[in-house]
Design a protein around this nucleic acid. Structure first.
Lengths: 354, 354
DNA sequence: ATGAAAGCGCTAACAT
DNA sequence: ATGTTAGCGCTTTCAT
């Protein structure tokens, strides 16, 4: 295919309005030092000609690229897509991030990078060199990858770290994991549960720990023991099966289980079914994520809703603000999720004796 | 934030290798007229310095942008995201399209455009002017929108039309809707069904008609009547409820229903439950899409799997080929889907008499 | 087979 | 408040 040239350029607008290129540029970028009447005249020409600045040219002259790069873990994301378990993390990121970008005239470009690869840094460097994004959004586990964080910091590219409490660099945002875990625990305690088990996520994710912290804190407040109630998990269905078997097969099993992912909650439900344990009659289950499928199980699962879209949206806003010179927030932005109550939680079975 | 300059440019590489900019450019673009030894030397410098060409600069000088624009319907896509019904169309497009793009060094940018808006053309023009994409992927209903198709054709941008049989312009790809409908119908006929109802999708989508065609054709082959068996639908749950009520409430109701979307199939299942009709004992259901949730219903739904990822992948390949001068395919590319059999289909109830 | 020069569309820096 | 100039990083001419 032949070369494609811009049909309407800043030159055309300048000629049409009878002003210099610079004035047009000033109008486009909302810069000061343009008389209102001048601005109007230029805007009229822009509208008339249907002029839209070329992002490539803008970027070339040292300005913004109007591109925000969203980085997700390759392995996990592809597994989610292929698995077709209805994991809608990416959709929700697009919903929040892309739409917010559009409001500001930015675009979001999605990129997969493998955290466990030796080439992470090279991959990221390549993406940055090729696209010259104005900002980067990191999701777990990238958010706490020192190689990635260090590179971005060094290159002075504003970046958001979703699911991280941050540190010296970047803009940290969390979905209030500790608070969510506390609310889930509180919900179960309020229903009368005393023995509440917890299946954590992969230790590679900081948020896994925070959720455990939340559960422990709320249990402590209610003066409830947690011994033998913390299983092991890594977000996957398989790990959920093992964890649920472990918890439910113990001498003094819990009457409620909080799982750090829908997949593990689904696994817990399945294990309970296998063991002839009625949900929610004999066992209550709360899950994390609230992906679409949890509404279709029998019973539907009570779940912590992760505000992914809202968080992505905030990340975009914060990046654009940073790009415009806003100071780096000192505290992590905490976007609070909700607890959606469904059929999997109820009062515990009546104790036979004290 | 200050201006961000490319850290390693073609100049650095040229200096390091001791050649002209031009030679480096030739190596990058795999152009002829470079001695192998020269090429090696340049490549060594590129690797050493970690050089990656700036897409913006490449685009500026009249070359490719390495950007492919995927256009989805705004209203529908946002509704899917917000609805959180597990519609994973976007995920599957990314899975197929993005990964294929990556293979060729391209990026996919996702954009929402409102087909029903008077400004479609302006919106699209703006996106094209801003991004200068090397190709565009259209999904229904954009694929058959004459305004969009016309604009793209006129601008000589290679574009794929998913879910369209095409016409004078663009590269048409279908998911073999007619064939899939035939296979679904055949599956039910083989089980012994004679009265098979059909709930079509929105008439705004050409593929809705093709599916009806497939069903009618297969019914005709088996010498079965279709009178009173075609309902009305528009893909939504609500329309599915109305259609299912209509079909199941008729004097001579079908023993099987094919729904053109999972949502309508879900609705049919719900209506059957309300009416005390056992699935699959008294009624078989086949759905279209095979989104994640259909595995979690009771019973799980037999479904036509739409090869979205594969189709997006093919679209990218065809666009890149076109961009490199390949002739436009004369026939639509047909990517065949599969029929996933689950618990919602079985033999019809035994007839009381003839 | 290689190099030099011109220019893509835009903005930063410097005039006026 | 507006205009002029230079140059971003690269590819396309057009030399050699």
């Amino acid at each position: 295919m032949g070369r494609r040239r811009q049909s309407v350029t800043i030159k055309h607008v300048a000629a049409d309005a009878g002003v210099s290129l610079q004035t047009v540029s000033r109008v486009i970028n909302n810069e000061p030092n343009v008389r209102p009447e001048m601005k109007e005249r230029v805007q009229a020409s822009i509208d008339k000609l249907g002029y839209v600045p070329s992002i490539a040219a803008q970027r070339m002259s040292g300005s913004r690229s109007y591109l925000i790069l969203a980085l997700n873990d390759r392995e996990r994301t592809i597994a989610d897509w292929r698995g077709r378990q209805g994991v809608d993390w990416v959709d929700q990121m697009l919903l929040g991030g892309m739409l917010k970008c559009a409001e500001y005239g930015y675009r979001m470009i999605f990129e997969l990078v493998d955290t466990h690869n030796d080439h992470v840094e090279r991959e990221l460097r390549a993406a940055i060199a090729a696209l010259q994004p104005d900002g980067v959004i990191l999701t777990p586990p990238h958010s706490d990858n020192p190689l990635i964080v260090g590179l971005l910091d060094q290159q002075k590219i504003p970046f958001a770290r979703i699911g991280s409490r941050g540190g010296a660099a970047g803009i940290a945002l969390t979905m209030d994991d500790e608070g969510s875990a506390r609310r889930a625990t509180r919900h179960l305690i309020d229903l009368g549960h005393r023995r509440i088990g917890f299946i954590p996520g992969s230790p590679e994710y900081s948020l896994s720990r925070w959720r455990v912290d939340g559960w422990e804190a709320e249990m402590a407040v209610a003066d409830l023991a947690t011994d033998g109630l913390l299983a092991e998990g890594d977000f996957t269905y398989a790990s959920g099966v093992a964890a649920a078997r472990h918890l439910l097969g113990s001498a003094n099993p819990p009457t409620a289980i909080i799982a750090s992912s829908d997949q593990m909650a689904l696994a817990t439900l399945e294990v309970a079914r296998d063991l002839g344990i009625d949900v929610p009659g004999q066992l209550s289950i709360v899950s994390f994520d609230n992906t679409p499928v949890v509404r279709f199980t029998q019973p539907a699962l009570t779940a912590v809703d992760q505000p992914v879209a809202e968080t992505a949206s905030r990340a975009v806003e914060l990046i654009i603000a940073a790009q415009r010179g806003a100071p780096r927030p000192t505290e992590p932005t905490r976007v609070q999720g909700g607890l959606v109550q469904r059929g999997s939680t109820a009062a515990p079975p009546v104790a036979v004796h004290g």
